[in-house]
């Protein structure tokens, strides 16, 4: 029964992560090693990190091409931009670039007859590749997110009141330590997961790790929200049940956080700090299973 409840909670929490995903669909072809000959139509972008590839005359790429390392012979057509950061890029006589050519490093050999329809940028002033922009949050989307977080908080507080309280206490009473640990977990964790993904074989573990990191961040926010709920109850001088208090606190917390992160200049930094505090509090309390007591106390 306990396991089933735990699985149910994990599944419910993981649903919240869908709110963090990019709304647009992004496709990329990745070449890291070996020799390849590509032909036909490719959607999205092409990223080359190593190896050797020949893009034949009937090859077409809808997005942009980024060459970081390796050797690429292009004879087909690229509709987006081509960015050369390292390696060797050769444009065959039949090559056609629909966008700009950005030369930031590496060696470039154009053949007579190759066509570059856009501009050619060189040096360190090359524009960054266009990433698919996340669509603006639809009207009411923020409120819906906040409601979802609030419901999750009420649900977790109902079944795991002590865990949520421990996370909230660590985040509010030891914000500096929680923030520091959260920052380390985030920076080192993401670096580790990206490194694992490079091995190809460990991609599933890397994805699982990313999922766990996201889950921890969500759990941390809920802990902070529950603490905010207690504070709201005290300020209003109205005793609320723990679940109600967590719901109201988390709802308010997510809305305020949304407001803070939309501030120019400092918004993103504040968002990162709050996320780090939540993540750190979850790490210090082992997902709320133990109380964090500083070594000096």
């Amino acid at each position: 029964m306990k396991t089933a409840r735990l699985l149910l909670i994990l599944a419910s929490l993981s649903l919240l992560l869908t709110a963090c995903g990019a709304n647009g669909l992004y496709q990329v072809t990745l070449i890291t090693d070996g020799e390849h000959q590509l032909t036909g139509a490719y959607p999205g972008d092409l990223l080359m990190l190593g190896g050797k590839a020949t893009l034949l005359p009937d090859f077409t790429l809808q997005g942009s091409l980024h060459l970081v390392s390796g050797q690429l012979d292009l004879h087909g057509q690229v509709f987006g931009d081509v960015t050369l950061l390292g390696g060797k890029l050769t444009l065959g006589p039949s090559a056609c670039l629909g966008g700009n050519l950005n030369l930031g490093g590496g060696t470039f050999h154009p053949s007579p007859g190759s066509v570059i329809e856009g501009h050619t940028h060189t040096g360190s002033g090359i524009p960054l590749p266009d990433l698919p922009e996340q669509n603006a949050t639809p009207p009411g989307g923020t409120l819906l997110n906040a409601l979802l977080f609030g419901l999750a908080a009420a649900f977790l507080t109902r079944y795991f009141p002590r865990s949520i309280a421990r996370v909230g206490e660590a985040a509010s009473r030891h914000a500096l330590v929680s923030g520091s640990v959260g920052l380390l977990v985030a920076v080192v964790g993401i670096s580790l997961l990206v490194t694992m993904a490079y091995t190809i074989l460990l991609i599933p573990i890397s994805l699982l790790g990313l999922f766990a990191l996201g889950l921890a961040a969500v759990f941390g926010w809920i802990g902070l929200g529950a603490t905010a709920g207690n504070l709201i109850g005290r300020v209003l001088n109205r005793p609320l049940s723990p679940a109600k208090s967590a719901f109201i606190g988390t709802l308010a917390f997510v809305l305020v956080l949304e407001l803070i992160t939309s501030l120019p200049l400092v918004g993103d930094l504040l968002g990162i700090i709050v996320a780090a505090i939540g993540l750190g509090a979850v790490s210090l309390t082992r997902f709320g299973f133990q109380t964090f007591i500083p070594a000096t106390e």
Partner: peptide
């Protein structure tokens, strides 16, 4: 982790450095 990243970077014979490695080193 930092040296593992350097090791991977050397193995793929990349021609430009990645800032995440000195960042972890500095940390």
């Amino acid at each position: 982790l930092t040296h593992l990243q350097y090791s991977f970077h050397i193995r793929v014979e990349a021609e430009s450095g990645v800032l995440s490695m000195p960042m972890l080193y500095a940390l």
